[in-house]
Nucleic acid binder design. Sequence first.
DNA 1: AGATTATTTTAGCACAAGCTATATTTTGTA
DNA 2: TACAAAATATAGCTTGTGCTAAAATAATCT
Lengths: 156, 156
Amino acid sequence: MPPASKAKSKKTKKKAATAARRSVEATARSHERTRSDHAREIAEDYVELIDDLIAECGEARAVDMAKRLGVTQVTVTKTIERLKKDGWVTSEPYRSVFLTDKGKELADYVRDRHEMVLEFLLKLGVPRADAEADAEGIEHHISPRTLAAMKRYVEG
Amino acid sequence: MPPASKAKSKKTKKKAATAARRSVEATARSHERTRSDHAREIAEDYVELIDDLIAECGEARAVDMAKRLGVTQVTVTKTIERLKKDGWVTSEPYRSVFLTDKGKELADYVRDRHEMVLEFLLKLGVPRADAEADAEGIEHHISPRTLAAMKRYVEG
DNA sequence: AGATTATTTTAGCACAAGCTATATTTTGTA
DNA sequence: TACAAAATATAGCTTGTGCTAAAATAATCT
């Protein structure tokens, strides 16, 4: 549990400074992003997983996705419906799931980004277990420019 | 739009390698985390904002929170109810919102982490606008150990 | 082929976060 | 002090992601 309850003095001044530094509009904008991008994050996770499963097993079946994602197969099916609606995947009843071209593109991008973030954290000195866990969480929020900066750090 | 459609060759081998490297259990575990931590993220955002508003305006009112978060006041009210239920804040009808001790602790932790992540990205060479946007997204997923590594980088 | 097993679908529920429209309460001012 | 404006609350809807239980379909194995 992070909140370690220490270092609570002389905070007030810092607070005001922080708040003043960024415009209200910018704050609202980024929070808007945060809020509604949850669906996009899930799409990214699914699409990457589907691509993995096709590479490993030759096909992506709901039951395997459910196992890997730690959810029920019903949840997978429903989400797949959404992804289909949004043009990331295709699937026929009782058949496995395939990526559209758009979906493949996303999967490739997501995988590269994931690997880069992980490498970056490792090189930064984060223990492997934490690095893997954090990479899962933060990968969705890494902009192309931040990704580029990470690449420079890893390669440089 | 990130997926840039290039570099799609010789991916297949890499995919299998990636998938094999991490255990199925570990993957499921982290996805579980991803899924249900959305509520925690929102709590962190609200708590930090409430703390900011109290520091700036003397009190945290729903209408100001709504403005900053880019949502309606109704949404704020409902979320505040949830936060109250979870012990982060207190509030009386038609009055402003206050943090519990637990809420203050969280706010302090979150603010420090946010500032560290932002400083880190800036030092890494990410342009300010991107750094600020990305910090909002990734801050919730930074474990204490990754935070420590960032601190070392910034200070070292 | 037929029965069993595995998988997928359907139906129906909960909860969180979003919205609009409307009612209520507080606040500020003529 | 009463009235208008501002803020908050309530009612009721949507969407997305969870769940369980039960029905339908596909696969498998004598």
